[in-house]
Simulated scan of single mutants.
Amino acid sequence: MSRLILIEGDKAIFLPSFTPALVLPRPGELKGSGPATLNGKKLCVEGDEGKVSVANCSYVIPGYSIPGKGTLKIAALGDDQKAKKTKTGDKAVLLKGTTFTATFEVQNPAKQPPKGPGPPILDSTPTYTGKGMFKTTNKIFKGT
């Protein structure tokens, strides 16, 4: 089945649920590195998804009322997001597809207020896993 090809400037939309964490996501922007272009914008190829990074996103988890911060990244593409046949510069082009696997890397942990005197209790989980999808401005150019 053919799907829309991703181009430079397209967005990675992260869903807020990184169970049990709830992240306040912002979109990430794809940088295309394929030699082929569409309307002057480079096509996105395999590997470009690894360059998406959205820093300084807030998050909370149950029991930790003081929000923390971290970085959203694409961990793995879905099976329908990398072309099997369509290539440019010997690399598979990226396709809109359905959903990708995302990670949220904690830089500043969420905190639980202390029960008495002393420091707050920090969230000890370094990463959370969630999902996301691509939003493209390309409405016609498809790959398989």
Rank of each mutant, 00 (worst) to 15 (best):
K41G: 05
K41N: 00
K42V: 02
K42Y: 09
C44H: 02
E49I: 07
G50V: 01
K51M: 09
K51P: 07
V52E: 07
S53N: 06
V54P: 02
A55N: 01
N56L: 03
C57M: 10
V60Q: 10
P62E: 11
Y64F: 15
G68W: 04
G68P: 06
T71F: 11
L72A: 15
I74S: 06
A75Q: 13
A76I: 12
D80H: 08
Q81V: 01
T86F: 08
G89V: 09
A92S: 15
V93I: 07
V93H: 10
L95K: 00
K96Q: 15
G97Y: 00
T98D: 14
T98Q: 11
F100Y: 14
F100K: 12
F104C: 00
E105W: 05
E105H: 12
V106P: 02
Q107A: 13
Q107V: 10
Q107F: 05
N108R: 10
Q112A: 02
Q112W: 03
P113H: 06
P114H: 09
G118H: 00
P119G: 12
P119C: 03
P120L: 08
I121P: 02
L122C: 01
D123C: 09
S124K: 13
P126E: 06
Y128E: 12
Y128C: 12
T129F: 13
T129E: 10
G132R: 13
